[in-house]
C-alpha cells in the first residue's frame, strides 16, 4: 500500500548506531555532523533524523490515550527537533492494537494522535504544522498476536511530511 512505515526498522538501526557513536564521540553532534560521524545516511529534517534524534513514536496502554512519562519525554524531544527544522510539518498517525473493534479503534487512534498533537502544541509547536490521521487497527507495526506486538501497535507515530 501507499504507506508502509519505512522509517521503523531503519530508525531502530540508526538509533542504535547513534547511541554507540554518541558514547564514543561527541554527545552534542551538530546536524551536519550527526550523519557523517555515525555513518548514517539520512538528511537533516528527515524521518530518519527524527527517529534517531527525537524518537518517532509514543506508546499507550490498552484502551488508553493519556501520555505516559516516556511519551512526554519523546514529544519534548520532538518539539525541540521541530524547532530546529521550522519548515518541517508532521502527520501524527494514531494506531491501536487488534484487540478492539474496527470502528471504535479508529476513534481511539484519533484520540491518541490528538493527545500527542495537543502536547506538542502545549510545548509551543505551531498547530498548523501538525496534522493527524487515525488508522485504528488497520496498519499494525508488529504483526504478532501477543502482548509485545500489541504494545508496539498502541502508538502515536510522527510522520515527516
Amino acid at each position: 500500500m501507499r504507506f508502509t512505515h519505512p522509517g521503523y526498522k531503519i530508525a531502530s538501526l540508526v538509533a542504535a548506531l547513534f547511541v554507540v557513536a554518541a558514547c564514543s564521540s561527541t554527545p552534542e553532534a551538530t546536524t551536519g555532523g550527526a550523519s557523517t560521524s555515525t555513518g548514517a545516511s539520512y538528511a537533516p529534517g528527515s524521518q530518519e533524523d527524527l527517529a534517531a534524534n527525537a524518537g518517532d513514536s509514543v506508546f499507550f496502554d490498552f484502551d488508553q490515550y493519556n501520555l505516559k512519562p516516556e511519551g512526554q519525554a519523546t514529544l519534548q524531544a520532538q518539539a525541540a527537533w521541530l524547532a530546529k527544522y521550522p519548515a518541517v510539518t508532521l502527520t501524527i498517525e494514531g494506531h491501536a492494537d487488534e484487540r478492539g473493534t474496527r470502528e471504535y479503534n479508529l476513534a481511539l487512534g484519533e484520540r491518541r494522535a490528538n493527545s500527542a498533537r495537543a502536547y506538542l502544541i502545549s510545548l509551543g509547536v505551531d498547530a498548523n504544522r501538525l496534522q493527524v490521521i487515525s488508522y485504528g487497527k488497520d496498519r499494525p507495526f508488529a504483526v504478532g498476536s501477543d502482548e509485545t506486538s500489541w504494545a508496539q501497535n498502541r502508538r502515536g507515530f510522527s510522520r515527516v511530511n
Binding site: 476513534a107 484519533e110 490528538n114 487515525s134
Partner: peptide, 22 residues
C-alpha cells in the same frame, strides 16, 4: 475523519461518526 456509516431504513439518510480533536 468520518467513518462508521450506515443508511436509515428509508435510504434517505446516512448516520456516521466524525472524529475531530480527539
Amino acid at each position: 475523519m468520518t467513518f462508521a456509516p450506515r443508511f436509515s431504513p428509508d435510504g434517505n439518510r446516512v448516520v456516521m461518526s466524525m472524529a475531530r480533536d480527539g
